[in-house]
Nucleic acid binder design. Structure first.
Lengths: 259, 259
DNA sequence: GCATACCGTTCCATATTATGAAACTTTTTG
DNA sequence: CAAAAAGTTTCATAATATGGAACGGTATGC
C-alpha cells in the first residue's frame, strides 16, 4: 500500500477562488447556481467567493440578469506581465521586421508543457483574412509550426512524452495523426533549420516557424509567419525561410546564444 | 459617532493572494521577505500563499535566485476574457479599416472609473516609432484623446468628479493642467464630434479619437488613431476626422445606437 | 575560514476564518 | 397566482489559516 503523499493546495479558498475565475473565463457570464453546480460547491460558498472577487474588482454582477462575470482587471495584470517579459521586448523589433517584409501575420510563442502559448501577435498587413489565434491562446505543440520548431530541439523521449500527453485531434486532412510522421517531419526541421505547417492546423493556412536559442538551456520560444495558401505559396515560403533563419540567428545571438 | 459598517472582503486569504499577485505583477521577480515586508504579512503566511499560487500554476520560483514571479497563466485568462468581449469583436474589423487607411496606430479603450483601459491595439503599419501603450495599460482620462472623447459625453459634475479624482500630472508642456481649459476643450469635442490629443500626453504624438454610442446608456468605449506629429499634421488630422466619424457612426449603429 | 546574519522552509498549537445548513427574499416559470 | 428556482443572509460548528518558533542553507562580513 504505497503511501502517496499527494501534494495539495495549502490554501483551500485560494484554490476555489481560482476555480470560479477559470470557470467564468471559460464560459463567460454565469449564474450563481450554475457555478455552484459545475464546481460542486455549496451555493453559499460560491456566493461568498464571488463577493470577494467583486470586492477586489476582479468580477462584477450584471444588474439585469444578476449573472456574474469577470472584469478586465486581470487583463491589466496580464499586460504588466507581458511588459516585463524580457524576451518579448527583445524580440519585438525583429518580429516587426518580419511583419514589414512579409506583410503576413507574425507570432511569438512560449512553451507551456505540451502546449504553446501565444504571447505576441502582429496582424497581417495585407488582406482581410484573420487568423483565430490571439495573445493568451494555448495550442497543442504537435500540430503547429512553432510547436514543431521547438520539438525538433528535444530528445526523442521528450517528443514522445509530448505526443503521449497530447490529445491528438484531426483538424484538417493534413493534420499529423501518427507519431512516425511527426518524427520524420522533425528530422526535416532539424535538417532545414525551420519548421513548416502546411495546412495541418487550419485549412488554407501555411506557416513557417523557427525557434529561439539561448534563453534557457532548453528551447522555450519560437516565432512564425503565417498566411493564406493563396499568398504563402511553397515558393514564397522558401523565400521567407531565408528571412526567418536570419532573424532566428540574430535574435538568438542577442539573447545570448553563440554558435 | 457615525457607525460606519465598512464593507470588507469576506475571504481574507483571497484578498491576500491577490495582493501577492498584484505585487509580483507590479515589481516582477521578488523574494519572499521582500513581499512579506511590503505587504506587512508574516513570511510564513506569504510562503504558504506562494506555494498555493505555484500549485495552481499562477506563479513559479526561479531555481537560481529562489525569487518568485508570476507565470503566464493569467495571460491566458486575460485572452479568454478579451475574446468574449462582444464590443471588441464587433469593433475589430472597423478599427482594422482605420488602420489600413491611415497606417497609424489604432486603439480601442474602455472606461474604468477615472481611467481608461486599453483593450485593443493595432500597431502602426508605417514607420518605426512605437507607442508605449499596450493592451492592459491603464491611463488617466483627462490627458488622452480617448478619455476626452468619453468625458465630452458626461454631465459637468461627472467631469468634475473625474478631474478631482485624477492625479493631475504634467507629461508635456501641452498637458491640460487646469480645469477651465479641460472644459473648453470638451465643448470643442462636442462641437466637432471628435477629440484631439495634440502632444498633451506624449511629446511628438498627435491623436484623434471618438467615442462609441449605444453599448450602455453611459458611453464606455472610445477609439483613436495616433501617430507622430511628423505624419499627423493638423491637415491630415482633419482628413482623418472624416473617417473617424464615419466609423463612429457605423459602429455605434451596429452596436445598437440609432440617431 | 569562521561567525553571523539573512533568507527560505517546515512544523504545530491556537485562534480565526471559512463552511454549509437553514431560513429568508426575490425572481422566474408554469 | 402559485410554485419553483435563484439569489442572499445568518449563524453555530468544524475546518482552515495563522504566525511564532525552530531548522537548514546560503550569502556576508570580519
Amino acid at each position: 500500500m504505497a503511501e502517496e503523499k499527494e501534494a495539495k493546495n495549502p490554501v483551500q479558498s485560494a484554490e476555489r477562488i481560482f476555480q470560479v475565475m477559470e470557470m467564468l473565463a471559460e464560459n463567460g457570464e454565469m449564474g450563481l447556481m450554475e457555478i455552484s453546480a459545475a464546481l460542486g460547491l455549496h451555493k453559499s460558498t460560491v456566493h461568498r467567493l464571488l463577493m470577494s472577487l467583486i470586492y477586489m474588482g476582479y468580477a462584477k454582477q450584471d444588474e439585469g440578469s444578476q449573472k456574474y462575470m469577470l472584469t478586465c482587471k486581470v487583463v491589466s495584470m496580464s499586460g504588466k506581465i507581458l511588459e516585463r517579459m524580457d524576451i518579448l521586448q527583445i524580440a519585438r523589433p525583429y518580429l516587426e521586421r518580419l511583419s514589414d517584409l512579409s506583410g503576413e501575420t507574425v507570432h511569438l510563442v512560449q512553451r507551456e508543457g505540451n502546449n504553446i502559448l501565444y504571447v505576441y501577435k502582429i496582424e497581417a498587413k495585407v488582406g482581410t483574412i484573420r487568423m483565430v489565434s490571439h495573445v493568451g491562446m494555448v495550442h497543442p505543440m504537435y500540430c503547429s509550426g512553432v510547436g514543431k520548431a521547438i520539438m525538433a530541439t528535444l530528445p526523442e523521449r521528450e517528443v514522445r512524452a509530448i505526443w503521449d500527453g497530447s490529445e491528438i485531434e484531426r483538424h484538417t486532412d493534413k493534420t499529423i495523426v501518427d507519431y512516425d510522421r511527426l518524427q520524420r517531419e522533425l528530422s526535416e526541421v532539424r535538417r532545414d533549420g525551420y519548421a513548416l505547417d502546411d495546412e495541418e492546423n487550419e485549412k488554407g493556412v501555411r506557416c513557417i516557424a523557427a525557434c529561439l536559442y539561448g534563453y534557457k538551456k532548453e528551447v522555450t520560444h519560437a516565432f512564425s509567419i503565417s498566411g493564406p495558401t493563396s499568398r504563402m505559396t511553397r515558393e514564397r515560403v522558401r523565400e521567407l525561410a531565408v528571412d526567418v533563419k536570419k532573424v532566428q540567428e540574430e535574435l538568438s545571438r542577442e539573447i545570448g546564444y553563440y554558435k
